[in-house]
Write a protein that binds this DNA or RNA. Structure first.
Length: 649
RNA sequence: GCUCUCAUAGCUCAACUGGAUAGAGUAUCAGUCUCCGAAGCUGAAGGUUACAGGUUCGACUCCUGUUGGGAGCACCA
C-alpha cells in the first residue's frame, strides 16, 4: 500500500468512527499539498461537509486531530485550512516507501481481463507519411502502452487503405511516365517513389483539365452555373472568406479568387474527373480491372504496394512503433458488404433498399442522417469497409472495446459507424471510442500539399537527428564512443524530443508545430527528461564504486529527510494516479507532464544537495537509492511514451 | 445555413477533471561550474483565463448567449 491509500483508509475510518458513515476509502479525495502550505498530502474535506453537516474548517481540524492522535507513527502533524486538511507523514514512512520502490520498481497493474483494440496509423498507400501521421502514430502507440500499464490487454492494429481510385492514380502515372523506375534505380524510399507518381498524376490531370477549360463546352457549363444567382451568391461568400485569409501571404494574387476559378476548382472538378477526363476514365478502368483481378493490374498493384510497405516499415521502425495485426482494406471491403447483405436478408433488418438498388440506413432517430452503405451497383462504401473490418476484428479477438485513433475531421463518420455497430448488436459497440486528435499546423498555417508545405516524416526525423548530432559535438560528452554508438544516442535523443513535443499536448487540441522550436533541446523537452536520467546513471556508477563501503551501512529509523528528498518522493508517489488518469481519458499528455515534473524535481534535488558524501554514509546510501528509484520511474514512464533513456548523452 | 470543437503570459503548453494566491518552458534581463554531467539550478518581469450573464461554500473547468479560429455536413476516402 502506498501513502495515498494509507491516508484514504484512515480518513475513511475517521468518518466511520465520528459520524457512523461508511465511505469507500478510494472515494476520499487526496491531492498533493500545495507548495505554499506545510504538509505532504491533502485531504479534501469539502465533499464530506454536506453529509456530516459540519463547517469545512471544523471538519478538517477534527480529521487532523484524529489522524495524528490515532496514528502518531504515520502522521506527525497537520494544518487545517478551510476544507483542506494538510497532513505530514513521518520521515520513516517515506524511507520505507523508497526502499519498497527500490525492491519493486514501477510496473504494469495486473491484467483486468479486458481486451482493447487500438487502431492507429492506417495510412493510404499512395503517399509517404507526414507530420500528421506522426501525431497519429505516437498517440496510438502511447495510448496502447498506457492502457497496458493500467491493466488492459491491448492489441495494436491498423487498417491499410490499399485500394481505391487514389491508389490507381499513382499506379497509372507510374505506368505511363515511370519508364520502369524502381526504388533501387531511383535511390529513394519506396513510399516516396510512389508518392512522386501520385503527385505526377495530379499535375498531369491539372494540365489536361486546364486545356479542357478553354473549350466551348466548358465555357457553356460555366455560364450556365454563373446564371444561377443562388450558386453565385454562395460561392462569392466562400471566395471572399478565402481571399481575406490569403491576403497577407506574399504570393497573394487577386486573380486566383475569381468565380471562374472557384467553379472549376471546387464545383466541377469531380464531375470532370468522372465524366470527361481521359485520365479519370483510365483510372476508373484500372480500378475495375483491379476488382476483376486482372493479372497485369494486380501485379503492378502488388509491386508498388510492396515498395510502399518497405518504406513505411523503415519509418515505423525509426518511430519505434509496431502492430500486432494488420488489416487490409482490399480484404475487408467485401466482408462489410457481406455483413450488410446478411442483415438485409433477415426479417428485422436495420437497413432498407431504395428503388435504385442502393442500400441505406436511417439514423435520424439517433440525431444522425440517412446514410448509404451500399451503392446502387452493390459496391462498398468507406463506412461499409469499416463495418467489415470491425466484424473481422471481433471474430479475431473477441474484444471488449475498440479505440480508433483518427483525426477530428472524421468525427461524424465515427458517430455513424458506432451507431450502426450498436444496431447490429456487437457487444463492444458500447465501448467504441474515436480518439480524435486535432490537426498539426505550422507557424505559417496549415500544411497544404498544393503549396508544398507538407512536412515529410522521414525528412523531419533526419533533421532532428542532425541537429542533435551538432549539439552533441559541441558538448563532446560522447567523444570517447564509437561513431555508431554516438549515432545511436543521437537518434534516441532526437526521437525523444519529437515524441515529447507532440505528446505533451492534449490530443483534441489543434497544435502548432514549429520546426525551429522542436529542435530546441532546452527547457520543457524530451532531452531535459533524458538528461535527468543520465544524471541518475552517473550516480549509479558512483554507487557501483562504493558498493563495498555501503553494503553494511543501514539507514537509521530516525533518518531526517531533506526537503528536496521529500519533494522528489512526493512526485514519485503520483505515478499511479497519472497513469490512471491518462488511461481513463486516453491522454498521454498526463504522462508527459508527469515525466517533466519528476525530471524537474530531480534536477532541483541534484542541485540542492550533495548526494555522495563519504562522511555521511547512511545519507549517501539513501540518496543513491532515491536516485535509483527516480531512474526506474523515468525509464518506465518514458517507455509509455516510447521515449528511450540513454546512459549518456 | 446546420452540427461539433477550440480560445489561458509576447510565443508554445499546464492546471490532478469543480478546490487554496492560475503554473511551466521559451524569448528578455540578472546571478550560478577549482564541487556527483550546466541539455542543469536560482531570481526579476510577464494574466480582467476572448466577452457578458448564470449555477454554489468554491468556476479556467459546468449551463446560456456573444465574438473569433478550426473541422464536418457526397452513391469520396
Amino acid at each position: 500500500m502506498n501513502l495515498t491509500q494509507l491516508l484514504q483508509e484512515h480518513s475513511a475510518a475517521f468518518v466511520k468512527q465520528a459520524y457512523g458513515l461508511d465511505l469507500p476509502a478510494k472515494d476520499i479525495q487526496i491531492a498533493k499539498t500545495d507548495e505554499k502550505f506545510e504538509g505532504d498530502l491533502t485531504v479534501l474535506v469539502f465533499p464530506l461537509v454536506k453529509i456530516t453537516k459540519q463547517k469545512p474548517q471544523d471538519l478538517s481540524r477534527q480529521l487532523g486531530e484524529y489522524l495524528c492522535s490515532q496514528q502518531p507513527n504515520l502522521f506527525t502533524q497537520f494544518n487545517a485550512v478551510a476544507g483542506f486538511c494538510n497532513v505530514s507523514f513521518a520521515d520513516a514512512c517515506w524511507v520505507d516507501y523508497t526502499l519498497a520502490k527500490l525492491e519493486n520498481p514501477a510496473q504494469n497493474l495486473p491484467h483486468n481481463g479486458k481486451t482493447v483494440l487500438v487502431e492507429y496509423s492506417s495510412p493510404n498507400t499512395n503517399k509517404p507519411l507526414h507530420l500528421g501521421h506522426i501525431r497519429n502514430n505516437l498517440l496510438g502507440f502511447s495510448v496502447s502502452n498506457v492502457l497496458k500499464a493500467a491493466g488492459y490487454g491491448v492489441k495494436m492494429v491498423q487498417i491499410i487503405n490499399d485500394r481505391g481510385v487514389h491508389i490507381c492514380k499513382s499506379m497509372l502515372a507510374w505506368q505511363r511516365f515511370g519508364n520502369g523506375e524502381t526504388p533501387q534505380t531511383a535511390e529513394i524510399k519506396g513510399d516516396h517513389l510512389v508518392g512522386k507518381y501520385y503527385v505526377r498524376f495530379e499535375t498531369e490531370f491539372q494540365s489536361e483539365y486546364k486545356k479542357w477549360q478553354q473549350t466551348e463546352a466548358a465555357q457553356n457549363l460555366l455560364n450556365a452555373w454563373l446564371s444561377n444567382e443562388k450558386n453565385v451568391l454562395k460561392a462569392q461568400k466562400e471566395i471572399d472568406k478565402d481571399k481575406e485569409k490569403a491576403r497577407e501571404k506574399e504570393n497573394f494574387n487577386e486573380a486566383d479568387f475569381s468565380l471562374e476559378k472557384y467553379f472549376f476548382k471546387e464545383v466541377y472538378k469531380n464531375t470532370y474527373f468522372n465524366e470527361q477526363s481521359e485520365l479519370g476514365a483510365a483510372c476508373k478502368k484500372m480500378l475495375q480491372d483491379w476488382e476483376n483481378q486482372e493479372p497485369n493490374v494486380i501485379a503492378l498493384w502488388q509491386q508498388m504496394n510492396g515498395w510502399v510497405y518497405q518504406g513505411f516499415g523503415e519509418t515505423y521502425q525509426k518511430l519505434g512503433v509496431n502492430f500486432d495485426k494488420l488489416y487490409y482494406e482490399s480484404q475487408t471491403y467485401l466482408k462489410g458488404k457481406e455483413l450488410v447483405e446478411q442483415n438485409l436478408a433477415q426479417p428485422e433488418t436495420i437497413f432498407y433498399k431504395e428503388e435504385d438498388g442502393s442500400t441505406w440506413i436511417d439514423l435520424t432517430a439517433a440525431k444522425l442522417d440517412k446514410k448509404v452503405v451500399l451503392r446502387g451497383d452493390g459496391t462498398s462504401m468507406y463506412i461499409t469497409q469499416d463495418l467489415g473490418t470491425a466484424w473481422q476484428r471481433f471474430q479475431d479477438f473477441d474484444m471488449d472495446a475498440m479505440i480508433y485513433v483518427v483525426g477530428n475531421e472524421q468525427e461524424y463518420h465515427f458517430q455513424v459507424l458506432f451507431e450502426i455497430l450498436k444496431r447490429l448488436g456487437f457487444k463492444f459497440s458500447q465501448q467504441c471510442q474515436h480518439l480524435s486528435y486535432g490537426m498539426v499546423n505550422l507557424p505559417t498555417g496549415r500544411m497544404k500539399s498544393r503549396e508544398g508545405t507538407v512536412v515529410d516524416a522521414d525528412d523531419l526525423i533526419s533533421l532532428l537527428i542532425e541537429e542533435v548530432r551538432k549539439e552533441s559535438q559541441e558538448r563532446s560528452t560522447l567523444s570517447d564512443l564509437s561513431p555508431e554508438a554516438q549515432q545511436a544516442i543521437c537518434e534516441k535523443v532526437a526521437l525523444a524530443a519529437l515524441k515529447f513535443f507532440i505528446l505533451k499536448v492534449e490530443p483534441k487540441k489543434t497544435m502548432i508545430f514549429d520546426p525551429s522550436q522542436s529542435i530546441d533541446l532546452q527547457g520543457q523537452t524530451g532531452p531535459y527528461i533524458q538528461n535527468a536520467y543520465v544524471r541518475t546513471r552517473g550516480l549509479g556508477r558512483k554507487a557501483a564504486e562504493l558498493q563495498a563501503t555501503l553494503a553494511n551501512v543501514t539507514i537509521p529509523a530516525d533518518y531526517q529527510l531533506h526537503a528536496a528528498e521529500k519533494e522528489v518522493l512526493k512526485v514519485v508517489l503520483q505515478l499511479p494516479q497519472a497513469i490512471q488518469t491518462a488511461a481513463q481519458t486516453y491522454n498521454p499528455a498526463e504522462v508527459a507532464n508527469y515525466l517533466y515534473n519528476l525530471a524537474r524535481t530531480f534536477h532541483r534535488f541534484y542541485n540542492d544537495v550533495k548526494i555522495v558524501d563519504k562522511e555521511q554514509l547512511a545519507q549517501t546510501k539513501f540518496r543513491l537509492n532515491l536516485a535509483q528509484v527516480v531512474a526506474d520511474t523515468l525509464q518506465y514512464a518514458g517507455a509509455l511514451l516510447g521515449m528511450e533513456m540513454p546512459e549518456m548523452m
